[in-house]
């Protein structure tokens, strides 16, 4: 029971990370294509301003919880995905620094440099997180010692790439909707149109990805064994469709919330299908990292559960409050503030 709770909590933490950092990664990737002026770009940066840092902490927490609850899986997963993970980290480093640095020197070349870093630091991690998770769903060639056999390029298989595209599109739509919520006037309209257009690509890739999941992974086995679980993928499809509905009627906040729900449900869909594996081995199922062979001791799991159950809701409350408080449009006045990005 403790193991199931932790497995779900593990999935939820990654889901929340994707939901929150998803919009700012997506918006960073969208930025060069949607902004037409320096003012547009500043609106985009400032729309993420108070949030991106707190969002990234969910990654630290998701990583930390993987380490704490399933240390063996953490060790195998992170070392076998060495290069993609370090690329993600370098991307996130450049991107985080770009926020803070770009507005500090009033020089177009300097700003362009950080715009480029910010774009690659957003697009790269979005893509690679998708590739990594699709490969986790599919299974990676780890041997009985937890060592990756075969080259890194094997991670770039069609299903892995499809996973990367899915993440990028999920995040792009999510980011465009966030911009529609936060931006005034013309930029809001463009962001809405971008979300609307990108949604069709997302639908296409999502369908392909589900098909690929059916043929390439064993995720559906859990669903077929316990059909009531099919609620999750059904809710996922519903959330994706309702997102479009709200985009059409230009209810941006509602559309963003539905898109957030889509991301959470998509993650949970994969995670539930994965159980009891955390990292299946494509060589032999007995080499797979599961909740049974990679978890921490019951004492650690209990202590950590108490910490998580007390603090995670508190964090959610104050972060939700921050979103509520800073959810309004980025105004001209706000851009003139000394602290603005």
């Amino acid at each position: 029971m403790l193991l199931i709770i932790w497995f779900l909590l593990w999935g939820v933490l990654w889901a929340v990370y994707f939901m929150l950092d998803g919009f700012d990664l997506g918006l960073g990737a969208l930025n060069p294509f949607i902004s037409r002026s320096e003012k547009d770009r500043r609106i985009i940066y400032n729309s993420m301003g108070p949030f991106w840092d707190g969002n990234e902490v969910w990654l630290i927490t998701a990583g930390g919880v993987t380490f704490a609850a399933f240390p063996t899986a953490y060790a195998v997963m992170f070392s076998s995905l060495y290069t993609p993970l370090l690329l993600i980290l370098f991307g996130l480093i450049l991107r985080g620094v770009a926020f803070e640095f770009r507005s500090k020197v009033d020089n177009p070349g300097w700003r362009l440099l950080w715009d480029i870093c910010h774009f690659f630091g957003s697009f790269g991690p979005a893509l690679l997180l998708g590739v990594a998770f699709a490969n986790i769903f599919k299974g990676v060639p780890i041997d009985g010692e937890g060592v990756l056999q075969g080259s890194l390029l094997s991670l770039l298989n069609p299903y892995g790439i499809l996973g990367g595209l899915l993440f990028v599109l999920l995040f792009l739509v999510h980011g465009a909707l966030w911009l529609a919520v936060k931006a005034p006037g013309d930029l809001e309209a463009r962001a809405g149109r971008a979300a609307s257009g990108l949604w069709w690509f997302l639908l296409l890739v999502a369908v392909l990805f589900l098909g690929g999941t059916w043929s390439e992974t064993k995720l559906f086995n859990n669903y077929l064994a316990r059909p009531f679980l099919l609620v999750v993928p059904l809710a996922l499809v519903l959330a994706l469709l309702v997102t479009k509905g709200f985009i059409v009627v230009r209810k941006w906040v509602a559309a963003w919330l539905c898109s957030a729900g889509t991301i959470v449900l998509a993650t949970l869909f994969g995670v539930i299908g994965l159980y009891p594996n955390l990292l299946p081995s494509s060589l032999d199922p007995k080499f797979s990292m599961t909740v049974y062979n990679s978890a921490s001791s019951p004492l650690t799991l209990k202590i950590m559960l108490a910490v998580a159950l007390v603090f995670v809701p508190i964090v959610m409350i104050y972060q939700a409050w921050a979103y509520f408080k800073f959810g309004d449009k980025v105004t001209d006045e706000a851009l003139t503030q000394d602290e603005a990005y």
């Binding site: 930390g64 380490f67 609850a69 950590m304 910490v307």
Partner: peptide, 11 residues
């Protein structure tokens, strides 16, 4: 060790 890092992030 992992649990200490996780606590650090959460709290």
């Amino acid at each position: 060790f992992g649990s200490l890092l996780a606590v650090e992030a959460t709290v």
